[in-house]
Amino acid sequence: MLRFQASWLMETIMDNITESSDPNWHFPCLWKFTALEWLSHLNNKFIINVPIHSQAIIFKSWFYNQNPFPDSEVMRAFNQVLNTSIDINSNPFKDWLDIYFSKQQLAYLQYWREASGDIRDIALKESFLSIVYQVMNYWIINNKYGFENALTPDQIFSFYYKKYAEFREHNAKFSITEFDYDTILPENCSHVVFNLVFKDEDFIDDDSFFVYNAWLGGYTDLKESKKTIIEKIKPYYFEFGNTKNFSFYKRMTEKANSASFCWSGTGISLNLYKRFLVKPLQDVLDGTYKHSKLVYKPINPTKKQYDFILLFY
């Protein structure tokens, strides 16, 4: 699990580096769009690579500046109240009944998926789909904890539509790419940021990620959905004692003035991180950067939970 803290990263960079007047950032692998909220208020440029397609849609709809914002008329047209009951047997997502969703919720998911097919403009369609993701997330959690949903499906859809509008009030310029690990290229940038994912780590902590991925693909097999997602992220795994990614780091930092590695540690002592993560990275980037600095903050010291940033400049 990674707890990415954009403002802390900014502070760390500003404490150590004289910032250029027009900073630009490169994130070679990111999969949670909310991580960018803070940075989106800065007058900076961002190149974000999102290898998971279902999440890239969300990134694009929330951050990509060229994307039009769906007006309320579009929303009304595609977010109607379902009055007639729909036969659950004809619902392609019926396997999720009473596991993740109620009958009514599944009817809406089927309707929204079909409705999205009628939206011609791809950008508008992506926006529509990303709001459905939020609604699914809300339903999955409430059903898990046995809460009655206080809002009707169309109301919760409208609620997230408004949230979406708030989120889009940003100053930054984003460009979103969907390169795989092997095809991604280094960028001329002020900062390159690596969010470290560890092997065997539960890097995605909620089911909505997999359910949404499957829903988008039109199937219900979550094992398959997980497999597709993990295949995309697996090459980025950091393994202690394994240097397989080091050439990737070296390549990605070629054109970057500084590099940051961010990770959330659990149960491993600071000294072990220093020995098996910090030192090897310092060795490999020794020729690229003159300085490095490790900063950390305690989250729950009794359980050895710390967040880290390793900055090279």
């Binding site: 954009a6 949670k32 909310t34 809300y138």
Partner: peptide, 15 residues
């Protein structure tokens, strides 16, 4: 739900 501030952390990411 990940729409808070300052880091927009979601679920159990929040201590």
């Amino acid at each position: 739900d990940g729409f808070g501030y300052p880091d927009s952390l979601k679920g159990i990411q929040i201590p």
